[in-house]
């Protein structure tokens, strides 16, 4: 049965997060030939971003611009999206399982008295049903879950469901909607940005992660160089963050970011379960650790037992050489 499915888009530093395009692809599966309607909240002109959503497969896009939506608040976005839902009466809603997605979607599901399947890594249409797969027990197991009645509402983990290919010959309407926003009960006083550059760890294809074994802030330099030659970005374990070697915005794991890159290189990380919860789904895992008994080797595809300060610089040289020869 074909469905009308809303995709709640999300921007970061003025452009759409990739997970928004992945959500469109997921919504496409859920909709089963029905309509995929993008929703974008913010302040100012959102039409260009709306257009991008169309190129990635949205049938049409509704933009909601309001000064109260300049920064995310659960009350502001909650009211705006709820009004769109009332207008559109969708049969499905998909959003990224990001900080905003985690905050907003349970609130909406609760207001709508609907089910919500959070953090899905796969969506398939089986017969008339839509079945979601999601990790449980810190990624030690998976469950398949479906909605028994009403709205098919889900959030998807970034970097797992491939986006459709961008096609700028696709057309779809972009319409503006006015909303009433009142009584925002949480006032954002300040945001201390810690994220160093524009790279979004949860969407990176290559991650070089450092742990307590990196030993100092300077110790991260070889990792940064390796990330540079591989076109990747640097992440960290809690151990490295707690020790002050790097900022908490780099933390990967249960408390930090959940990542699924194509290549994850763990340097001087022991492999605690809370760290694995954030990265064990990575497609290829390399571990560099001087302790052959370290748990990280249990999830690694390839391991080098050795001193990272010896191994990493050599790895950089070898990759540079490979690139020259290619």
């Amino acid at each position: 049965m074909s469905k009308k499915v809303l995709v709640i888009g999300e921007a970061r530093e003025g452009s759409l997060r990739n997970v928004t395009f992945e959500a469109i692809a997921a919504a496409n599966i859920v909709s089963d030939g029905g309509e995929v309607v993008g929703v974008l909240c913010g302040d100012g002109d959102l039409s260009e971003m709306g257009q991008e959503m169309v190129y990635y497969g949205a049938s049409r896009v509704i933009t909601v611009s309001n000064p109260d939506l300049k920064t995310y608040t659960s009350d502001g976005y909650g009211q705006a999206v709820y009004q769109v839902i009332q207008d559109e009466s969708p049969e499905g809603i998909i959003m990224g399982h990001t900080a905003i997605g985690k905050d907003l979607t349970p609130k909406l599901a609760s207001k709508l008295e609907s089910g919500l399947i959070s953090d899905a890594t796969e969506v398939i249409a089986e017969g008339g049903d839509v079945v979601f797969t999601r990790p449980i027990y810190s990624g030690k197991a998976f469950e398949k879950k479906m909605v028994t009645e009403g709205l098919v509402f889900a959030t998807i983990r970034p970097n797992n469901i491939p986006a459709l290919t961008r096609d700028d010959s696709l057309a779809g309407s972009i319409s503006e909607k006015e909303v009433e926003i009142s009584n925002i009960r949480t006032i954002i006083k300040d945001v201390l940005r810690k994220s160093s550059d524009g790279v979004d760890l949860s969407e990176a294809k290559v991650i070089i992660a450092g742990g307590r074994g990196v030993k100092s802030a300077e110790g991260f330099e070889p990792l940064e160089k390796l990330a540079e030659v591989l076109g990747g970005t640097v992440g960290a374990s809690r151990g490295a963050c707690d020790a002050g070697y790097c900022d908490y915005s780099l933390q990967i794991g249960q408390t930090g970011k959940v990542v699924t890159p194509d290549l994850y290189i763990a340097c001087g990380i022991s492999g605690a379960i809370q760290h694995l919860a954030g990265m064990s789904n990575s497609k290829v895992i390399v571990a560099i650790n001087k302790d052959p008994e370290a748990n990280i080797f249990n999830v690694a595809d390839y391991g080098i037992v050795g001193d990272l300060f010896d191994v990493v610089p050599k790895l950089i040289e070898e990759i540079k050489e490979m690139k020259v020869n290619a």
Partner: peptide
């Protein structure tokens, strides 16, 4: 409003290659 239809363990990962 939702139900779990299956619970499974991730496919056993082949032991990694320690070089």
């Amino acid at each position: 409003k939702t139900k779990t239809t299956e619970i499974f363990l991730p496919p056993e990962k082949e032991a990694g290659k320690v070089l």
